[in-house]
Nucleic acid binder design. Structure first.
Lengths: 196, 196
DNA sequence: ACCTGAACACCGTTCAAGT
DNA sequence: ACCTGAACACCGTTCAAGT
């Protein structure tokens, strides 16, 4: 017989376990299916148990956001932006999840910190570097959010049929991101040149 | 006695009436409180009646989005962006409502069309003009979305206390938008110069 | 310290039936 | 053509109570 017998009190879950479960629900069901009940099911626990670990759903979502937007090290503006975009793309609805936590002030983006440093190194003033970082973050999240919602709409078939979902158009998206990014970065650089 | 006596069959509602009701619920309760039941209450109608006018909530939201992002005429990139931003700011949670309809391909932005034209006039190629317009739209919506969620968080008190909500910081936001906008526009212009 | 069980006050959507 | 009434399958959150 096993040391853990069948009538043992149920094993304790950590905050980490709860976030793990949330990540797997997100991967399988997307943000629309990321409910407290489904997370509880994965953990084989009552919904109310989750509220011992997190005060509410938004706090749990903030922890999930932290898992999605992992720290990266990049010293150039474009590299930080690309790294942020890749971390968002690596998880279903990543941009939307991160966007909500960010807007509520529940998440600090390491990519943003890197962008501020890169902007300072490029010669921007403190205030301009903050603005530049926010501008880049907004661009990356906005673009990726839009892209991920369209991908999901394509799968579900909920989108307007006039939306162009042809493979050629989808494939081109990566290039569009980089083209727009180049414009934003060049604008940031020229604002440094203007201040010099 | 009035021509419309009390036992008359209830008066018919138009699609316009439904959207009107949705607009007033949005103004009073925000997007989180914009439920089909509340809209039905305003119209003094059963929830199911709304489904005769709109196939689902997203379609109704798209109509609401059309009301928010009203057509404007501007011939410069920065003017179109500012006009779009102002239309979003004029309605509670305007950026979030428009963002979701846009991502699902259920809304055409006249501001975006104007931006494409302005970019072409500035000398961009067709493809670059599309990218430029999308970049600007992402910037405007991302910035305004973030700003409106923070304003709401400030009212509700749901935000992290470390978030700086001092009047000075809030007042400075308008300037930050324009500073970031100037960077993006300058980047777009320089991409035209590079292609020349 | 961590969880159960049950309840509260909601959701969006469907559908037969009425006028 | 437009709406009612009722139901279905969900939500997030709270709270007394258990171990």
């Amino acid at each position: 017989m096993n040391a853990a017998s069948a009538d043992q009190p149920a094993l304790r879950r950590s905050k980490t376990d709860v976030v793990d479960a949330a990540m797997s629900v997100l991967a399988e069901n997307g943000i629309a299916g990321l409910s407290m009940r489904r997370i509880a099911d994965v953990l084989d626990v009552q919904v109310s148990a989750l509220y011992w670990h997190f005060p509410n759903k938004q706090a749990l979502l903030a922890a999930v956001s932290g898992r999605i937007a992992t720290g990266t090290d990049a010293s150039h503006l474009a590299d930080s932006a690309t790294a942020l975009r890749e971390s968002l793309l690596a998880h279903r609805d990543g941009a939307e999840v991160v966007s909500s936590s960010l807007a509520l002030g529940l998440l600090e983006l390491s990519a943003r910190t890197q962008m501020v440093e890169a902007a300072l190194a490029a010669g921007l003033s403190d205030a301009a570097a903050e603005v530049a970082a926010d501008t880049l973050v907004h661009y990356v999240i906005g673009f990726t959010f839009h892209e991920q919602q369209r991908l999901h709409a394509a799968v579900v078939g909920a989108a307007d049929p006039s939306v162009d979902l042809s493979p050629a158009r989808i494939a081109v998206t990566g290039g569009d991101f980089e083209a727009g990014l180049a414009m934003v970065v060049s604008g940031i650089r020229s604002s440094a040149a203007a201040a010099r």
